[in-house]
Amino acid sequence: MQTWPVQDAKARFSELLDTCLRDGPQAVSRRGEEQAVLVPIAEWIRLTQQNQPSLKSLLLAEEARTEYLVPPRRHLKRRKLSGLEG
């Protein structure tokens, strides 16, 4: 995997993208430390789908895995209603 300094990645993004599609993932570094990776979309889809269990595996699992079945709750701010409070 080739590493591109962020300045070069910004200035030559088309070349970075072409290299990624041709040669695979490309790292982007800031101040000498790798910070991000550009990967082809097919690779990204494969990686993200690989990490999510299927419904069948959740149902057949010995332990409860409800964190995947219940959507996260939203943290909404409640409005104060004027005139209704005594």
Rank of each mutant, 00 (worst) to 15 (best):
G86Q: 10
R74N: 06
P71G: 04
S14F: 01
V70R: 13
R46S: 10
P71A: 08
L69A: 11
E33I: 06
S14Y: 03
P40G: 01
K56Q: 06
R22H: 15
V39S: 12
W4F: 05
L55C: 14
L58C: 01
A27Y: 14
L55D: 11
T3D: 10
P53N: 08
L60Y: 09
H75C: 13
R79H: 13
R31M: 06
Q26S: 13
Q52T: 11
D23A: 11
G32P: 04
P40A: 00
L47R: 15
L84D: 04
L76V: 12
S14C: 02
E62L: 14
Q26T: 13
T3W: 03
L84E: 07
V70P: 09
E63W: 03
R78C: 09
A27I: 12
L16W: 05
A36Y: 10
A61Q: 06
A27S: 15
A9G: 06
K10G: 00
L58K: 00
E34G: 07
Q35L: 13
L16I: 09
R73A: 15
G86V: 04
L38H: 06
L84F: 08
W4Q: 00
Q7F: 09
K56H: 02
Q7A: 12
P53G: 03
R74M: 05
Q50C: 13
Q26N: 14
R22A: 13
L76F: 08
D23I: 11
T3G: 09
T19G: 00
P25I: 01
L16V: 12
G32T: 05
L76C: 08
K80S: 02
D8K: 05
T48E: 14
R46V: 07
Y68H: 02
G86F: 06
A9M: 07
Q52L: 10
L17S: 14
Q35T: 12
A64S: 08
A11T: 09
A11K: 10
S57N: 05
H75W: 13
R79N: 15
K10M: 00
E34F: 08
F13P: 02
S82M: 11
G24K: 01
A64M: 07
M1I: 12
D18T: 09
L81S: 08
S29H: 00
V28C: 04
L69F: 11
I45P: 02
G86L: 06
E85G: 00
V39E: 10
Q7G: 08
V28I: 13
G32K: 04
G86P: 06
L17T: 12
G86A: 08
P5Q: 01
Q7K: 11
Q2F: 07
F13E: 07
E33L: 06
R46M: 07
L58P: 00
L17C: 15
Y68L: 02
N51L: 10
N51V: 04
L47M: 15
E62F: 10
T19C: 01
L60I: 02
T48F: 15
P40H: 00
Q52R: 10
S82P: 04
A9N: 03
R65K: 10
L69H: 09
T48W: 12
T66N: 11
R79W: 14
L59N: 03
N51R: 06
Q2A: 09
K77N: 04
E34H: 13
P71R: 08
Q2I: 05
E43F: 14
A61W: 03
Q35H: 12
E85N: 01
E62T: 14
A36W: 09
A42H: 07
K80H: 02
G24L: 05
A11F: 05
G32C: 09
T19S: 02
L21E: 10
